[in-house]
Write a protein that binds this DNA or RNA. Structure first.
Lengths: 217, 217
DNA sequence: ACCTGAACACCGTTCAAGT
DNA sequence: ACCTGAACACCGTTCAAGT
């Protein structure tokens, strides 16, 4: 729109570095590359080139490649949390909403397998972890804890430690997500659907108030 | 011992390439590096140097770096399968043996987190997968299917499709393993132990023959 | 402040050449 | 057959210099 945007697109004008938020643009470009080709194929030089920016411009906003990946992972947990909350609330904050959360979780992993992989499996040996990333992951996990607490209040789930219960549920869901995006279920669609159905049943049984005989409480 | 081993250790003797099985040595060296520093830190040049061999010698035995990693992953599934079978048989091929398998699985993941990570999470975008690796992974999974089949025969588990049931159990265990080695459980030891205990209980409940009323079968 | 361009120390992989 | 050494096309990262 503005006159300063005119001129040859390949040519850099003096004083015209980059439009508004380069940091944001870097994250989004990295995410595009990761979704399209996987995190292994991500190069800082490629990200810069795609944005028409020098390959060292990135270092003004990120300490190194790991920091960029941490930002991408953080963005993933933010999107995941939003998807979980949306599903939970849309389907009535009850048993149906809880199952919808599970579906939304798997959908996220299946739709963005490379992004999902960056969110986990990083920082094994790094020792130090990004505090913001940690907080965002905890926040997404919190959506699950809150849902289970609500279910317990309404007598729809065993009255166990919600944190422990949430970790168990997360383990199951994360495990399925990994098996699916690793392609370890052969007849992909059908097998995955069957596993989802079976798991939902088993989870219902595992979390229901114990009906077994002999328990005095 | 032999006279040919004498001489300067840094100096290469003419005609003395490498002792017996270089392929095996390459896998084991790669595994050492991965266990010590993580798969990200693995370089082919480093592996060659550690073995006193040129950095291109590797290409006589592996097509590329990915192929070496596939061999390392395959070795992992072999070791995992052995650990699972050993636990299952040692503890009596029953309910106790089944729980021992779970413990052995988590022990493997915790003792070799980087190796465990290489076994999963690879080959997202590669398309083609190593057939031998696939077979070894299937074989390890088979140990779980066999155990569940035996439990069902003895009336110790619901009579569901063993394959589906095994996938569910694997998902849970894999999910926990990932949470633990990602360091997502804060008070590492204590929290992990509590989660293991809780999960074992929930799994018992989820796999027990359904005691719910109203079922006519 | 933010960005650039050259430079450095690495990679994986290829290939003609040695034994 | 198996291994070597030089070479190629890449990386991430640093840094003095520009505006």
């Amino acid at each position: 729109m503005s006159a300063t945007k005119a001129g040859r697109p390949r040519r850099k004008r003096a004083g015209q570095y980059h439009h508004g938020d380069l940091r944001r643009a870097l994250i989004e470009q990295a995410l595009r590359t990761i979704d399209a080709a996987g995190a292994d194929r991500l190069t800082l030089r490629g990200v810069g080139a795609a944005l028409g920016v020098s390959r060292t411009a990135l270092y003004r906003h990120f300490a190194d490649k790991e920091a960029l990946l941490a930002a991408v992972a953080r963005e993933g947990f933010r999107l995941l949390r939003e998807a979980l909350l949306e599903a939970w609330e849309r389907d009535g904050r009850g048993a149906a909403g809880f199952e919808a959360m599970g579906v939304a979780y798997l959908r996220f992993a299946i739709d963005h397998p490379s992004h999902y992989r960056v969110m986990f499996g990083r920082f094994v040996e790094s020792g130090e972890r990004d505090a913001d990333l940690e907080a965002e992951a905890e926040s997404a996990f919190g959506a699950l804890v809150d849902a289970l607490t609500a279910l317990q209040r309404d007598g729809l789930a065993r009255a166990d430690d919600p944190l422990l219960q949430a970790r168990f549920v997360w383990s199951v869901t994360h495990g399925i997500a990994m098996l699916v995006i690793d392609g370890r279920l052969r007849g992909c669609d059908e097998d995955a659907a069957a596993l989802n159905r079976y798991t939902a049943e088993r989870l219902r049984q595992a979390l229901s108030a114990e009906p077994a005989p002999g328990a005095n409480r």
